[in-house]
Amino acid sequence: MPSQSDVITVDRVGIRFKRNRRARRSFKDLFAGSSRRSRPGEFWALRDVSFTVRRGEAIGVIGRNGQGKSTLLKLVAEVVLPDEGHVRVREGVAPLIEITGGFVEDLSVRDNVYLTAGLHGMTRREVDARFDDIIAFAEIGDFLDTPYKHLSSGMRVRIAFSVISQLEEPIILVDEVLAVGDKGFREKCYRRIEELLDGGRTLFFVSHNERDLRRFCTRGLYLDKGRLVFDGPIEEALERYSSDTADPS
């Protein structure tokens, strides 16, 4: 039974995706197929995944590409819904997942700040109060009236991270979003994440960088083929992952 300190509960969750959009279902599938069985052209991105997260925990989600890590974060962010099981999130989420999504190419940087912050629940008054801090953090003051489409990929990440990191939601979801940022700004963002953690936030962090995982996380969830194969201390999770992926030769 979940405790009062559990902010995320994932219970026997599974989610299916289509491999081939042209895959056809037979007449028999339509009327006799089980909804829990994979149909032709479908695969389970996650299956039978269960765990809980307590308030203030810092979780590293690890695994090879295509094993369900990003899908898991999107389930917690309620971007997608499970096909079986359920996900319960008891506190608000600040999603640093595909953070440049939602920005409008033809709008200026200034207008995009207000638009994106508003989409995440900030009022115009709140954005007004934090606007200077957002721009200063992103180091993008000379481009306020530049159309967003003219920004480099690194500049896009800067402004997006700066906006999202101003949200006061208790749960932070981070999915390799800073990979395109320059080293100096990436370190600046990481210090900001540490500040948020020191303030009691809960962290879900997807990364292939072991140094970053050790820096932020105390607990690791190791996914393999869409299933949770290890849940425990981050060092043990990384050792298990390293052992499983080592070249036999």
Results as ranks from 00 to 15, higher is better:
residue 104 V to T: 15
residue 69 K to D: 05
residue 144 L to R: 05
residue 9 T to D: 11
residue 247 D to M: 03
residue 151 L to I: 10
residue 127 V to W: 03
residue 187 E to R: 14
residue 54 R to L: 10
residue 111 D to L: 13
residue 236 E to K: 11
residue 206 V to T: 12
residue 153 S to E: 12
residue 218 T to W: 01
residue 185 F to L: 06
residue 40 P to L: 11
residue 57 E to P: 11
residue 71 T to Y: 04
residue 222 Y to M: 13
residue 219 R to K: 15
residue 111 D to M: 10
residue 55 R to F: 07
residue 121 G to Y: 12
residue 124 R to E: 11
residue 248 P to W: 08
residue 48 D to V: 12
residue 173 L to N: 05
residue 25 R to N: 03
residue 249 S to A: 07
residue 42 E to N: 10
residue 185 F to N: 11
residue 130 R to A: 14
residue 248 P to D: 10
residue 204 F to H: 01
residue 204 F to A: 03
residue 239 E to R: 13
residue 129 A to S: 13
residue 191 R to K: 06
residue 221 L to A: 03
residue 46 L to S: 12
residue 121 G to V: 15
residue 193 I to C: 02
residue 105 E to F: 14
residue 82 P to T: 13
residue 90 R to L: 09
residue 164 I to W: 02
residue 197 L to F: 07
residue 87 V to K: 02
residue 168 E to Q: 14
residue 188 K to T: 06
residue 65 N to L: 06
residue 83 D to F: 00
residue 63 G to R: 05
residue 155 M to L: 12
residue 238 L to S: 02
residue 182 D to F: 14
residue 64 R to M: 11
residue 194 E to T: 14
residue 125 R to D: 15
residue 189 C to D: 02
residue 181 G to N: 04
residue 6 D to E: 15
residue 180 V to K: 08
residue 177 V to K: 04
residue 204 F to Y: 12
residue 102 G to I: 06
residue 14 G to D: 05
residue 24 R to H: 05
residue 100 T to C: 10
residue 147 P to K: 09
residue 99 I to A: 08
residue 64 R to V: 07
residue 237 A to M: 02
residue 152 S to N: 13
residue 69 K to H: 04
residue 33 G to T: 06
residue 151 L to M: 11
residue 206 V to I: 15
residue 131 F to G: 13
residue 178 L to S: 14
residue 55 R to N: 14
residue 131 F to E: 13
residue 162 S to N: 04
residue 47 R to T: 12
residue 70 S to A: 05
residue 171 I to L: 01
residue 242 S to M: 03
residue 11 D to F: 03
residue 158 R to I: 08
residue 25 R to W: 03
residue 25 R to M: 05
residue 126 E to W: 05
residue 101 G to P: 00
residue 148 Y to I: 06
residue 229 V to K: 02
residue 178 L to A: 09
residue 80 V to C: 09
residue 116 T to Q: 09
residue 121 G to P: 11
residue 86 H to W: 06
residue 144 L to P: 04
residue 173 L to H: 04
residue 238 L to R: 02
residue 222 Y to Q: 07
residue 152 S to G: 12
residue 53 V to C: 12
residue 171 I to Y: 00
residue 133 D to I: 07
residue 248 P to Y: 06
residue 109 V to I: 14
residue 36 R to G: 15
residue 35 S to Y: 04
residue 160 A to E: 07
residue 180 V to C: 06
residue 143 F to P: 04
residue 77 A to N: 10
residue 48 D to E: 11
residue 108 S to E: 13
residue 128 D to A: 07
residue 160 A to C: 08
residue 229 V to N: 00
residue 16 R to C: 07
residue 83 D to W: 01
residue 40 P to F: 09
residue 99 I to V: 15
residue 97 I to K: 00
residue 13 V to A: 07
residue 59 I to Q: 08
residue 69 K to C: 09
residue 216 F to R: 03
residue 25 R to I: 08
